[in-house]
Simulated assay, not measured.
Amino acid sequence: MSLERPAAPFPYDLLPPTETFLVTSDNFSEGDTLSKRHVYDGWGFDGENISPHLTWRSQPEGTKSFAVSCFDADAPTPAGFWHWTIVGIPAEVTELAENAGANGGEGLPEGACMCRTDFGTKDFGGAAPPEGDIPHRYVFAVHALDTDDLGIDDSVSCTVAAFNYLGATIGRATITGMYQNTGE
C-alpha cells in the first residue's frame, strides 16, 4: 500500500517563535535514519523501543526547567502522533541517557515524569510508521521553560502537556530522525 501524500509542515514552525539552542544525540545526527534500537517493539515491528541519548546546551537565560518530547507530524492522522513527553526536568539537567524513556522512569532525573503517549503508555514509543508510507520525521524537541511547575503530572496526555508548556517555553532545540517502513 502506498500512501501518496506530501509531508506535513514542520510542527514547530506553526507555533510562536522562541529562542533556539542546540540539542545533539550520540545515536543519530539531524536527518539520519533511526536505528532499530529506536523503532517500536510491537504492532508488527521488531525494534527495541529504546529512547535515544540527548544532550543540550546554550539554553536561554532564565530557564527553570525543561520538557522533552518526540512527535511524528507525518503520521497519517489530522493530529500527528506523540511518541514521548517528559516534563519536570530540572534546569541543571542537560542530558538524557539512552533508554531514559524506559517503562517505569528509572532513567529519568529526579522530579521528572513521562506523560501518556499516543500508544497509551508512559514511556518512549519508537518509530512505527505504516508500511509503504512516506518517510516519517521523528522530531525530538527540548523545550526550555520559564517555570519549574506546569501544574500537571503523568496522568495527562502528551498533547495536554504540550498545551501547558507552550506558554512557558522561552527556547526550543530540535533534532529530527527519520524512519520509513518499507515492509522489508
Results as ranks from 00 to 15, higher is better:
residue 107 G to V: 01
residue 75 A to S: 12
residue 86 I to M: 00
residue 39 V to L: 06
residue 127 A to I: 15
residue 150 L to H: 01
residue 52 P to I: 01
residue 103 N to I: 10
residue 109 P to K: 05
residue 42 G to L: 09
residue 54 L to N: 12
residue 55 T to P: 00
residue 85 T to S: 09
residue 56 W to C: 10
residue 85 T to P: 05
residue 62 G to I: 10
residue 140 F to G: 00
residue 135 P to C: 08
residue 39 V to Q: 12
residue 133 D to S: 13
residue 45 F to I: 12
residue 48 E to I: 01
residue 113 C to L: 02
residue 41 D to L: 14
residue 66 F to Y: 12
residue 98 E to G: 12
residue 83 H to E: 11
residue 42 G to V: 12
residue 108 L to Y: 05
residue 92 E to A: 14
residue 61 E to G: 13
residue 107 G to K: 06
residue 56 W to L: 07
residue 106 E to A: 09
residue 83 H to Y: 09
residue 87 V to H: 09
residue 54 L to S: 10
residue 50 I to S: 04
residue 42 G to D: 01
residue 40 Y to S: 02
residue 90 P to L: 14
residue 77 T to D: 09
residue 112 A to I: 07
residue 108 L to Q: 03
residue 134 I to S: 05
residue 53 H to A: 01
residue 93 V to P: 05
residue 93 V to D: 02
residue 118 D to A: 10
residue 108 L to R: 11
residue 144 A to Y: 11
residue 151 G to H: 07
residue 72 D to Y: 08
residue 99 N to R: 12
residue 94 T to S: 06
residue 74 D to W: 08
residue 142 V to E: 01
residue 115 C to I: 13
residue 89 I to C: 07
residue 136 H to S: 10
residue 102 A to D: 11
residue 97 A to N: 10
residue 89 I to P: 08
residue 130 P to E: 06
residue 134 I to R: 01
residue 59 Q to T: 03
residue 68 V to I: 15
residue 46 D to E: 05
residue 94 T to A: 02
residue 124 F to G: 01
residue 150 L to R: 02
residue 144 A to I: 02
residue 116 R to V: 15
residue 109 P to N: 06
residue 84 W to E: 00
residue 110 E to I: 14
residue 120 G to E: 10
residue 83 H to W: 08
residue 69 S to W: 05
residue 133 D to Y: 06
residue 124 F to L: 03
residue 120 G to P: 00
residue 92 E to V: 04
residue 119 F to H: 03
residue 100 A to L: 02
residue 116 R to I: 15
residue 126 G to Q: 08
residue 63 T to D: 06
residue 78 P to Y: 07
residue 136 H to E: 08
residue 44 G to N: 07
residue 130 P to T: 03
residue 117 T to E: 15
residue 126 G to D: 09
residue 112 A to G: 03
residue 52 P to F: 00
residue 55 T to R: 13
residue 73 A to E: 13
residue 120 G to S: 05
residue 93 V to C: 04
residue 112 A to K: 05
residue 79 A to W: 13
residue 126 G to T: 14
residue 103 N to L: 04
residue 86 I to F: 00
residue 115 C to T: 15
residue 72 D to N: 13
residue 64 K to L: 15
residue 107 G to M: 04
residue 49 N to A: 09
residue 71 F to K: 09
residue 70 C to F: 08
residue 112 A to S: 08
residue 133 D to T: 12
residue 39 V to F: 02
residue 147 T to E: 07
residue 116 R to E: 12
residue 76 P to W: 12
residue 65 S to Y: 09
residue 39 V to H: 08
residue 59 Q to L: 01
residue 127 A to F: 11
residue 56 W to Y: 08
residue 87 V to S: 10
residue 149 D to H: 14
residue 117 T to M: 09
residue 76 P to Q: 13
residue 147 T to A: 12
residue 52 P to E: 03
residue 44 G to I: 01
residue 55 T to W: 04
residue 140 F to K: 01
residue 63 T to L: 03
residue 134 I to M: 03
residue 58 S to P: 03
residue 125 G to A: 11
residue 78 P to E: 10
residue 45 F to H: 13
residue 46 D to R: 15
residue 81 F to H: 14
residue 66 F to N: 07
residue 111 G to P: 00
residue 115 C to V: 15
residue 65 S to N: 08
residue 89 I to A: 04
residue 55 T to H: 06
residue 61 E to H: 12
residue 40 Y to N: 02
residue 71 F to R: 10
residue 57 R to S: 15
residue 111 G to E: 01
residue 109 P to C: 03
residue 143 H to K: 14
residue 49 N to Y: 07
residue 41 D to W: 10
residue 150 L to Y: 02
